[in-house]
Design a protein around this nucleic acid. Sequence first.
DNA 1: ACAATGACATAAG
DNA 2: GCTTATGCCATTG
Length: 113
Amino acid sequence: MTFGFFEQVYRLVRQVPPGQVTSYGAIAHMLGHPHAARTVGWALHSLPAASDVPWQRVINSRGRISVASSSATVQRALLEAEGVEFDAAGTVDWERCGWTGLPWPEIEKLMAD
DNA sequence: ACAATGACATAAG
DNA sequence: GCTTATGCCATTG
């Protein structure tokens, strides 16, 4: 299952509505792997640019973009275009744009499909 | 099966 | 707030 865990991550990230963001840890936790945040990040990193997965809506726990390349600029631009607001320090307010996640039945259905 | 890797998370200095 | 150290996990060579 080359797409085992990655596929799960992709499906969940695809559910993130525009204008909202979530964290790697939250994704991992929803998938039943509370400590697999690193793997989630790796999954998104290896994601092709042409993918339909809104990888830009997934950031680190502090509400900051951790990527250290030109993608960071693109990511922030995409998020701002969706309505996500950054403060002076380039941080996102979870209160404002944080994604609460899907109800369990929805997640379960995504995994089953 | 073992060692290395990585867009993380958290605690400590 | 930034840097360093440690823990965790799935994927890859």
